[in-house]
Design a protein around this nucleic acid. Structure first.
Lengths: 208, 208
DNA sequence: ATTACTAGGTTCCGAGTAA
DNA sequence: TTTACTCGGAACCTAGTAA
């Protein structure tokens, strides 16, 4: 983490942070002197406003500093969210999909966190690994793992999405070493039936 | 712009970039040697994968590199999306708050899982029900229920948060049919005293 | 207590050039 | 053409300490 990122996290864009240079230094694992020098430098560059109080420094971003952060944010946004739709081909599911999805431990969370109870079955989408980037970085919906009668079920990270205007969710099991080339889609309805899909069909999903 | 940001923009998270070190150097206004040296260093750190072709280098991110970018993106997201502060009004507590909170069975877990022993008393925040969404989905801290001498105490789901920079936790009792329009805040200090709060005061809580 | 200057040590950079 | 090593100089860091 850089000094500016630290300030962004602690003070926010428009807030202020009252602290000591030694405290920042400890967190960033550098010296008090380096923090002091860098803050002076940032102030010279017009990135931050610095105020020395008797008991430390009070820091806030200046316009140029906010601009700089915004630039980095926009770049990363386009990297993580660029080109919305993820396209893939429908493949045969794992077979066990229905069994997993319909576990009460999952369904209760689907309802409260995603807003729907899932049709028992997943749509498996074979995608280019590079497409996966469009999913990560979106708002995550965390589905907790739980212990069933005979075995335990792992957690899922879900992402709300649309498929042909239908509300769905992309579900990524936490435990799999995220193969990266397959997406599992859950939905409140039977997607294969609703859209008469067959294996090999091209499908587009739009993360929200 | 840094070298990693350049790579992110040109190659994306999962794509690759075929170029020459001198070309990157020109863009970043540095020397070809520095780019070469830094790429080698990034590869040693497992951030990128580097391939020397006859006519230049082909670069792509490795897992650790993607993780690093994602971390920066999420930090900036929370900074720019206003941190999703939940605002509400202070209301009179249930009166019994102190009795519950100070149960040894809870306090031991508060200390180990939240990192503080709670001041005996809760702050009750009346919120718009829609604001509750900002809390759910965050990282949960599960506090188990237990049996006391005369009665049993139910489990809590807690969420770490900040209130005026003070570390606090939002505590949601598992059993209540969670009315949804009230938040209970616990903290290591007496929040009413520390911030001289009175009923009806507006208060902001920032889930972490 | 603080912040921040000085001075000396370490790291980093890039011109020249090998491979 | 490339990439990347060497090495001298520039930039950076921090211990000591002034303010």
């Amino acid at each position: 983490m850089t000094l500016l990122e630290y300030l962004a996290e602690k003070a926010g864009l428009y807030g202020s942070l009252e602290t000591r240079t030694s405290e920042i230094a400890e967190f960033l694992k550098t010296s008090q002197q380096t923090v002091s020098r860098k803050l002076i430098e940032f102030e010279k560059q017009g990135l931050i406003v610095r105020e020395i109080t008797g008991r430390g420094v009070t820091l806030r971003f200046a316009d140029a500093g906010r601009k700089l952060l915004e630039g980095k944010f926009q770049l990363l946004s386009s990297v993580f969210k660029g080109g919305a739709a993820v396209s893939g081909k429908l493949t045969t599911g794992l077979g066990e999909g229905a069994y997993y999805v319909d576990q009460e431990g999952y369904q209760k969370q689907f309802l409260s966190k995603l807003g729907f109870k899932a049709y028992p079955g997943t749509l498996n989408l074979s995608i280019e690994e590079s497409e996966f980037a469009k999913v990560i970085g979106r708002e995550k919906v965390i589905i907790e793992g739980f212990d069933g009668k005979e075995r335990s079920f792992g957690g899922l990270t879900c992402y709300k999405a649309l498929l042909n205007k239908q509300e769905v969710a992309i579900a990524v099991p936490d435990r799999t070493a995220h193969s990266g080339d397959t997406l599992e889609i859950i939905a409140p309805v039977n997607l294969r039936k609703k859209f008469t899909l067959s294996d090999g069909d091209g499908v587009e999903v739009n993360p929200l």
